[in-house]
């Protein structure tokens, strides 16, 4: 799916388009599917546990580029880890999600990070640590500082979100886009170091879809 193309602008002078694969990883019931659902459909509802993997797409029309996100939402149960590596193969970005009201889920996110570090070089993937469920402030077990500090030491993007009350969900995906585009620019200035994102030489209309 992901192929290496180095061109930055399309023949028509339109901004370039990029396709990025983003995976959502984290413990059971931390809100991975809800984040995807909020981001793609801007809605919140009771979702069934994700079994295996589900897939969403979202297209962003930015001034500098058209970005197509392929969002892979994975099962959170540890059991599924043996099939999950199939899902995050070739990902360009990952959201490591934990529940701020459940400390264990942060430890689990740290384990996920170790797993990612084994499979990806730091410049191959953008990773964001996401503390979800800020609507449960009264039950908070992980301070903002703790999440932030861990992300800082590991060089991860960091944000606290609430899929339920629509807090910073868009922002976290935007932060990822900005980082990915920044890396594209750096890559373009070093033409011999090819990245793995796909550049599609056509402009596509705004679409939202989920499957």
């Amino acid at each position: 799916m992901a192929q290496t193309v180095t061109s930055g602008t399309s023949p028509e002078g339109l901004p370039p388009s990029y396709t990025y694969k983003v995976v959502l990883l984290g413990s059971m019931s931390v809100g991975k599917s809800s984040l995807a659902y909020r981001y793609v459909r801007n809605d919140f509802r009771e979702l069934l546990p994700t079994v295996g993997c589900s897939f969403f797409t979202q297209i962003l029309q930015l001034d500098e580029a058209t970005v197509k996100f392929e969002i892979w939402d994975t099962a959170g149960q540890e059991k599924y880890q043996s099939v999950c590596h199939l899902y995050y193969r070739d990902a360009q970005a990952a959201l490591l999600v934990y529940d701020i009201a459940n400390k264990q889920t942060l430890s689990r996110a740290k384990l996920w990070l170790e797993e990612m570090e084994k499979r990806f070089l730091p410049d191959e993937i953008v990773i964001a640590l996401v503390g979800n469920k800020t609507d449960l402030a009264a039950e908070r077990e992980v301070t903002t500082e703790e999440g932030e500090e861990f992300a800082r030491t590991k060089g991860l993007l960091f944000m606290e979100t609430s899929a339920k009350s629509n807090h910073q969900v868009n922002d976290v995906f935007m932060a990822i886009v900005q980082e990915l585009l920044k890396r594209e620019k750096e890559k373009a200035s070093k033409p011999f170091l090819h990245g793995r994102s796909t550049v599609e030489l056509r402009a596509s209309g705004a679409r939202m879809r989920c499957c």
């Binding site: 799916m1 079994v51 295996g52 993997c53 897939f55 892979w72 099939v83 199939l86 899902y87």
Partner: peptide, 15 residues
Amino acid sequence: HGVMWTLVVSRWFIC
């Protein structure tokens, strides 16, 4: 298109 079967059918089997 490089679509893995697991992506489209895992739920058919598991559920």
